[in-house]
Design a binder for these strands. Structure first.
Lengths: 164, 164
DNA sequence: AATGAAATCGACCAGCA
DNA sequence: TGCTGGTCGATTTCATT
């Protein structure tokens, strides 16, 4: 299951995380391998689920999704209900991410809506879930860019631990 | 600047958000358009920045990034320092997302690290930033899947508002 | 694991509604 | 402007090392 990656794989992944639009030729030039070799490695990375998907990133603003919302959710009886509540949270319109947390707050929900009304509906939908005890929402004023994705934000040491 | 999308664009985006691996042929079959027409629309969506990038999604676990961390950051003098602090937060190793928030907490930082030691380094890096007053970190036990991306999590009404 | 040649698919062009 | 069909170039695949 666990695949071992070498430096070349990391370099490929770093570039594909940024953009898949760039052709194989750029990669083969930059990494000094044939186009087929790059393709061979990319195929392996996909089949071993290191690369889960190649997908389009859509600008939320193009869909009028201008409000980004963090909501903390606490359930009343943490024992049995938590899993069900989590599942129901993922199904609410506008909800993009649900995280089950350690500590006092049980879930953090990240969602995008287009206006105030939709925000109210969203919060109502959360509160109406059986077992939800308390919610607390906060707005994002601005999303800051970190440059790349996973690998671009890793230190040398972190990368070394994977390659080893 | 603002592009108006029709139902066909939405259907294309919904599919490309899921996976770009699927052929043009699949899309043209499913939507009843020629391959060229699909290509024409996808090109437009890219050029108008509705599709920002086509990129690979990498499994964090393949990179040993098993710890996912939410950190709330409060700055001491919110007036002038906030922008600089935000910028510096994005540059810290392991940090993937930085959000500037409304309310009492100034920033929410989402990061991934491989182990306890890296977590300590990360939090130290945050605290050492000039102007940072207080931090509070929480761990994610589990990330729940919401199915798709943006469009898949939108209601009919939300989509209608975009298509208009 | 990597290569080069052969089959397949996507990008682009001119024209058309 | 949005679409079609066809051509060319790029990518994927496969046999071979």
């Amino acid at each position: 299951m666990d695949v071992d990656l070498d430096e070349t794989d990391i370099e490929i992944l770093k570039r594909l995380e940024k953009s898949d639009d760039k052709n194989l030729e750029e990669l083969s030039d930059e990494l000094g391998l044939s186009k087929s070799a790059i393709h061979y490695r990319v195929t392996n990375l996909k089949q071993s689920d290191v690369i889960t998907t190649i997908s389009a990133d859509v600008d939320p603003h193009a869909l009028d999704l201008s409000m980004l919302l963090f909501t903390e959710v606490t359930v009343s009886h943490e024992s049995g209900y938590a899993e069900d509540v989590g599942e129901l949270l993922t199904e609410i319109d506008g909800v993009n991410h649900v995280y089950y947390m350690m500590g006092d707050v049980d879930f953090i929900v990240i969602s995008r809506v287009q206006n105030h009304d939709q925000m109210h509906v969203l919060i109502d939908d959360i509160v109406e879930i059986d077992g939800v005890n308390e919610t607390s929402s906060r707005f994002v004023i601005q999303e800051l860019e970190t440059g790349g994705q996973l690998i671009d934000n890793m230190s040398e040491e972190m990368v070394d631990q994977v390659v080893e």
